[in-house]
Design a protein around this nucleic acid. Sequence first.
DNA 1: AGCGCTCAGCTTTTT
DNA 2: GCTGAGCGCT
Length: 717
Amino acid sequence: MNILEGLNSAQRQAVEAPEGPILVVAGPGSGKTRVLTHRVAYLVRERGVKPYHLLAVTFTNKAAREMKERLFQLLGSGLREITIGTFHATCVRILRRESERAGVERSFVIYDENDQTNLVAEAVDELGLDKKAYRPRAFLAAISHAKCELIPPSAFPTPTYWHEIAGRVYHRYQELLATNKALDFDDLLTKTVDLFRNEKDVLDKYRRRYQHVLVDEFQDTNMAQYELVKLLTLEHRNLFVVGDEDQSIYTWRGADFRNVHRFRKDFPEASVILLEQNYRSTQNILDAAHSVISKNEARVEKRLWTEKECGLPLTIIEAYDEEEEAQYVLGEIQRLEARGVCDLGDCAVMYRTNAQSRALEDAFVRAGVPYRLVGATRFYERREVKDIIAYLRLVHNPYDALSLLRIINVPRRAIGKKTLKQLMEWVNRLGISIYTALGRLSVQEAEETPFHPRSKRILSEFANLLEELIDAGQRLDLLELFDLVLERTGYAEYIRDGTEQGEERWNNVMELRTVASEYADLATQVGLTTFLEEVALVSDVDNYDERANAPTFLTLHMAKGLEFPVVFIVGLEERVLPHSRSFDDREAMEEERRLCYVGITRAKERLYLIHTFRRTLRGLSQVNTPSRFLLDIPQKLVRGSTGYERTTRLPRGPATVEVHQFNPGDKVRHPQFGEGVVVSSKLVGDDEEVVVAFVGMKPKRLLVSFAQMEKLLPTRG
DNA sequence: AGCGCTCAGCTTTTT
DNA sequence: GCTGAGCGCT
């Protein structure tokens, strides 16, 4: 199979580029994964680069997996020696291998955001600060940001008193991580950078190993990631990066698309290749996308084009409120499916915030139409799943105090607040870990302990349980260990309390068990380590099943990298998209625009942009204006005679409605909701808002100018 | 230990 | 308007 076959000239140019730094600017749908995989295949097949010398980094496990699959088609099993993975997974492997040189515990556990918050809270506590006045989340954000920029506690800038405190929290937080033998997500990167900076021979080893480095979604790299890549490649300069600043939507997480500019400065000889041909969307969709994104100032102009026809016009709809918005989406999806235009699974509904999924879910549940919700409550964040993982983490690393405290009284074993407080004080006084302290309890020494005899007995029983599990971890495979944890803790009896929720929780535990069973074949401790890593580093999108035949509900952030024949973007209103939080910050506003751009460019054929007249936000129902992004889309791309027509004439002219058209008791007919009775009516601005009780539905609020209601039997003149 | 109350908070969330 | 944390009461 010819690697260059079927590639357009820009793609081919990227794939065949000579050695040295290369920047591929790849717009949405321009075949960037294709370029990346073909580049790898090209290096191996045509340039004789050994797969062993290749490193390809992605941001998500899903992207990594896709890349492996596609490379398998090109290279067969030759891909096995290639290192393909996320930044974090790659760093974990390096850190475990070089644990001694990196100065990290070999059996470190990985703390996720939740663990991090808890640990910061602990640091805040220890510094004698009030958690109400000094919110741990805010500190964590600042700390994480600093770490992404490779700023250690000692160099943490303290422009304000708050920052000064934050610096102290940061310092203590790092100490706590160390005593727990834990690394957080950011540490995985920074510790690897430190390793490479401090241990020249280790760096040299990896430089020799990774003679070609490829980076996907380069606009999403943070400083630490860029530094990592730079350290590896500065000498041989074989760095191939693919990115698109217009799709940078994670700057709030430390991603910095200015890395593109840094790259151009650090690698001035780099060739820059633009991929502008789009293989996904119709020209109308691309034009709409361009009209939105081109308003951003901080960008290099590029314009996507396609060989496809201009396609259908976009549909812009104004719904009365979020309920009607959901109703419209539901109705339209059903209509498209009924007409055989598309399958349910071809449709996606995207929104700015997760809270917006509710109205949609309500409507779909009521209509009995299935849907897939991506994200919401994530599997690995469920209480029962975290409990079991905490037990397994302890087997792996009993110094993980966070996990220990999580389950010391789960299921309940009568270790309450008081005992726990005594335990912590005792542990702090002795300056030892909780695990070590627990071990001392069972030793029959005359050592003074602060506990009530009963508590002491219970604690020591718990210590024995822990010891037994740790011991079992040396001998049993992961599945056996998993079952032993359940058995010895009585977890099933604890969680299955006879309620429906209890059953669901138990099902989640069993689902986790299925995941664990995949690691049962591995050597005892390797299985546990790999499993824990996997669990710490996967996300929900990774498990997104593309085959189920139901529409997908997801946030715009999660939509990145995906595509759908039919896309609905809902909530296109000022303060929703763009989000109200971004109003006083130009850069944040540009990011909102990019988010909108990402959403639009997910659509292959049909795009619906929906806004509401009024929306309930944080319990407050208020009138909303259409999103500024909507106003940037030229009318000629839009299907005429929609509600949008009306709103574009805002501000409305002189009042056209001065008297009520409808009065309580009027019988009316609505094209969608059928017959009903008017409950109330009031004049709002120049329009009339009525509440109507339709047959078999709860009363609805409607706007007379929009709802095409017909009066059936006028009661009074 | 477990409950119910109040109050503050409230985007997005690749790893 | 809903949720989660903290607190006080039983």
